[in-house]
Design a protein around this nucleic acid. Structure first.
Lengths: 239, 239
DNA sequence: GTATAATTGTGTATAGGTCACACATTGGTA
DNA sequence: TACCAATGTGTGACCTATACACAATTATAC
């Protein structure tokens, strides 16, 4: 079969120029949690086509870097953070999704503790937006955001990743508020607590909340060892 | 910020040539079900680097076609089938994944009724392989296959997609064999039947199997209307 | 045509998970 | 010292998961 694919394999850079008219980018949906709301970090588009619209943080992928690496690079550049939770979700490849040419974009989402990021907010093109209040975005970024939010929603049902959005120590109330914000539902407090203790992911810090205008709750932290060693209960995480 | 991304947006085709050194392809994991085994359609690689190894069916994406369209094109070309179930899974973008240059590949899987495809098997480079017996594949295709199989396994827990792998009419025994083949587990026959009837996805054809050397079972077909209208039972699909 | 083999079709009991629900306790604040 | 606002805790009804056995049906071999 004398296909372009196979010619390409033998001599990828010198032939078949027609296949090198596509650029590839990564777009990062950076989630944070603040004031009991799930937020996403956006940048103001300075393009005429998308005047005054917000967009996700993205960048073209370099020929010599892995796709994941490109995504980490965007995150590091925009937030100053390494070592963040990052997950690839979907690749958006409609011909006309980018007004200036063919750009295929792979979407990632990441979860960061918003307080770690505050110092970088001096970049005044960047802002945290409550996910619930976002209408249109530039390009197809609203679709990308929705897709990533759905993935996040289903992921947290089985996997202990929400801890990336919280400080090291947190109260059960904060944890429940976070689940409620992500899933857009209200949960029963007693059942929520019961299930989390059943999961055995939390380590009691023997400390209490500070500066709350009411009875303080106990502080916990996530214990990854318990997760990996955990007995497999059949209980689902979310109430 | 004067980034290449933003320059690119204004004048994508004439600048930043460095970003146009990446080719993008799609790879299709085409699943079929035959003789109580889950199978995948592979092609023999004719490359020196992968002498005698098998690979997935893939092709470069054209500048003027959507990513999904490219995937359908590969399927149509290799199987002659339109109108198949197709789902994007993940994009593989390691720099060194392709020996001859930078190729980022988006993986899809599809589910086809293997009997519809038999006539095309005259293409003697193409063969169905039992998924369980596959060792190494060319490129990173074993990883791609494993990733797609995992996605399939989790997808069938909630979504009625396995019907794409069966003839229109099938017995409950065939359906159970299929679930067992995909998930690699044995299930209890009574519980399996009970749950499927609870789901209310099946329509009784009032026909019996033909040409089986024992008592024939009833034939059913999938009824998509019942799926969309279905009362949401909390039962999970798989036993 | 009768016996045999292979498979279909069916129900129940137990254990465990889901969910709804109320009150005493604690610490902060006025 | 009284009040406020939250934390921390247990039980019962319902539903789901799972394990498990036997009669009915058809094809086949004799």
């Amino acid at each position: 079969m004398g296909t372009a694919m196979q010619r390409t394999i033998r001599q990828l850079r010198s032939e078949d120029r027609e296949f090198f008219q596509i650029a590839i980018s990564v777009d990062c949906v950076i989630f944070g949690f603040d004031k009991n709301e799930l937020k996403v970090l956006l940048i103001k588009s300075d393009l005429e086509e998308f005047n005054n619209q917000w967009s996700l943080l993205g960048y073209l992928v370099r020929p010599d870097e892995n796709l994941d690496t490109a995504s980490y690079r965007v995150l590091k550049h925009r937030t100053g953070l390494d070592d963040v939770y990052l997950e690839q979700v979907y690749t958006f490849g409609e011909v006309s999704r980018h007004p200036a040419g063919r750009v295929i974009s792979t979407a990632y989402y990441s979860l960061i503790n918003i307080k770690d990021h505050q110092p970088m907010l001096t970049d005044n093109e960047l802002h945290w937006h409550p996910v619930n209040e976002i209408g249109a975005l530039a390009f197809d970024h609203k679709t990308i955001l929705d897709t990533c939010l759905q993935r996040l929603q289903s992921k947290i049902e089985d996997h202990p990743i929400v801890f990336n959005l919280l400080p090291e120590k947190f109260s059960l109330r904060e944890l429940q508020n976070l689940y409620e914000a992500i899933l857009g539902v209200k949960m029963d407090r007693r059942n929520f607590r019961k299930k989390f203790f059943l999961m055995n992911w939390l380590e009691d810090m023997n400390e209490l909340e500070q500066d709350v205008p009411h009875r303080p709750g106990k502080l916990y932290r996530f214990n990854a060892t318990r997760f990996s060693n955990g007995k497999k209960t059949q209980a689902t995480l979310v109430v």
